[in-house]
Design a protein around this nucleic acid. Structure first.
Lengths: 182, 182
DNA sequence: GCTCACATGTAATCCGTTACATGATTCT
DNA sequence: AGAATCATGTAACGGATTACATGTGAGC
């Protein structure tokens, strides 16, 4: 039984608590968007497959007459998740960033365009850091309560990473501005 | 005429000099692998499309009897590239990293597994930083020669980013080790 | 009554990798 | 002679996004 990456991500979210497909999308968009996006087009079919494989269990949980199905991990599901986490495979990582790519090739234009790009990049990284910072207190509290401290640690990783990126942009902006006036 | 991201990346590499499909793959694997991977299955069909669109021009450049076609930017190609670079659109970025994802969900296991993951992550980031560092002198020299200083700047971004990631891993390792012995 | 958030799903499409196929040249 | 590298391509597959389709409930 080999599962897709998406399958493990779903199992991971269900480890914390029973969730509907909608819930998974909400919480992922809020807290892991910056390193792992997920869409309904993957979630619902994958939940079906995981149910068939016996790794998750559906349970009806309607809100009034509004249909809602939450899923919880089964024992095999929990085992599959912890095996995936413990897997010592070293995978490459990739920072997918079209703006960084544009900056890389920006010698095809002039300094004003480079500066424009850099300022936009810096603003974006600052915004991501700020938006992650705004959920930090909540995640910190939740992480302690339900025994998932790593959610908090990795959130801080994201904040630190994007702050570092913003600083790098600031420094390069300064050097480009100096070079321009020289 | 709207081009794929891959198309622009190819135009970008051809801005520096005329290159074959093989050359593009080589240079991309060496210097932008950590933020933009590319495969032959994309390169060759895309070079064909770009030729049909008149953005690049093929030229036979055999090595003895071994066939080789290099491509160079046409004026419309250069224009398309600089328009893409100057595009003020702000795109989201995503750090695709399966190990970070595993770490995020690693509360499904114990501290030894977390530490194992962290050490592997740190080693990986250190290796990427070192491997980028080893080409830095060459890229620095090339960047000055052929007027592509941004290649060098973005390389330094990569080195700094992966060094920062390695440091973050070291710090979390220390805290987890402390917590373990407490 | 209208709009927004809740909630579930499918189909078309795109993007990208992997595997395969072929052949020449250079180095050991 | 054999292995590694240079060089070009295609086909199949899988993963992921987008657009679409449908309906409920809560608040204004």
């Amino acid at each position: 039984m080999d599962l897709s990456l998406t399958a493990y991500v779903i199992l991971g979210w269900l480890d914390e608590r029973a969730r509907s497909g909608y819930d998974i999308k909400q919480v992922a968009d809020l807290s892991t968007r910056h390193f792992s996006a997920i869409s309904y087009g993957q979630i619902y079919p994958e939940l079906k497959r995981l149910t068939e494989a016996g790794l998750v269990e559906p349970e009806d949980s309607p809100t009034g007459a509004r249909q809602r199905t939450v899923y919880r991990l089964t024992e095999p599901g929990r085992r599959a998740l912890s095996e995936w986490v413990s897997d010592p495979t070293i995978d490459a990582c990739e920072l997918r960033d079209q703006m960084l790519l544009r900056l890389f090739f920006s010698d095809a234009t002039g300094t004003p365009e480079k500066l424009g790009l850099l300022r936009a990049m810096r603003a974006r990284h600052q915004e991501v850091a700020a938006s992650l910072g705004s959920i930090e207190p909540m995640v910190s509290a939740l992480a302690q309560e339900n025994g998932h401290p790593m959610h908090h640690e990795v959130l801080n990783f994201g904040i630190g990473l994007h702050s570092w990126c913003a600083d790098w942009c600031t420094q390069l902006e300064a050097r480009l501005t100096q070079g321009e006036s020289r």
